[in-house]
Design a protein around this nucleic acid. Structure first.
Length: 203
DNA sequence: CACCAGGCCCTAT
DNA sequence: ATAGGGCATGGT
């Protein structure tokens, strides 16, 4: 089955992504909302989404759901706030690294628009704790760049449908990006969300 | 009680 | 290049 058809099939089956995905796919996003997506993309690494929500609520309730407050927050205090997101010590560190990059190295979310996608991706990947999936999630859902996010669910789907034998991240990303006629971030957001939703419900 | 959830880094081969 | 261990909570 072709990739375009898989999208249509998932779209027909699930419609518009709900729950957290309605927020991640929201547009336009305010700067504050983009920061939340960035924070969540770190917290959700190998974590149950419900546990991440507990953390996001805590950050929100204490007024720390922003890159600036994360930078200002003491490491030990941040660890406590995000405890339920698993691996909380390293994630507290990762959040600070990303916040430092965006606020201090880039000069804030606003300035990101001027950076081309390839450079931005390279810079994100150079940060400790940001790998392919996290970098691309940030690029796609926070900065609205047309890069296809590959995750475990995408790999499973590719295996099921027998789309290719090369399951490396780069190859799968190429496969999806070249198979879709519209190089459109809105489509990429929607498709990836549907893949995850499908993966969770059909496990 | 076991298992695992939208990764990533480090080390050893 | 790639496999394997560490990280370390809360829900089912």
């Amino acid at each position: 089955m072709e990739i375009e058809e898989i999208y249509k099939e998932l779209k027909l089956k699930y419609g518009k992504p709900a729950g957290q995905w309605s927020f991640w796919c929201k547009r336009p996003k305010t700067f504050q909302e983009k920061e939340r997506v960035i924070i969540e993309s770190i917290l959700t690494q190998r974590a149950n989404w419900k546990n991440v929500q507990l953390t996001v609520d805590k950050l929100s309730n204490t007024g720390k759901l922003s890159l600036k407050e994360i930078l200002n927050c003491k490491q030990s205090e941040l660890e406590l706030l995000i405890k339920s997101s698993v691996f909380f010590r390293i994630k507290a560190e990762r959040l600070k690294i990303v916040a430092d990059y965006i606020l201090n190295k880039c000069g804030g979310i606003k300035k990101i628009k001027a950076i081309d996608t390839d450079s931005l991706r390279q810079q994100l990947l150079s940060l400790k704790g940001v790998g392919d999936e996290t970098a691309d999630s940030i690029l796609l859902y926070a900065f609205e760049r047309a890069v296809f996010v590959i995750d475990e669910y995408t790999k499973r789907l590719v295996k099921e449908k027998n789309l290719t034998n090369n399951l490396s991240y780069g190859n799968l990303q190429q496969l999806f990006e070249t198979s879709l006629n519209n190089k459109d971030y809105i489509l990429y957001q929607d498709f990836h969300a549907l893949i995850v939703i499908n993966g969770k419900t059909t496990k």
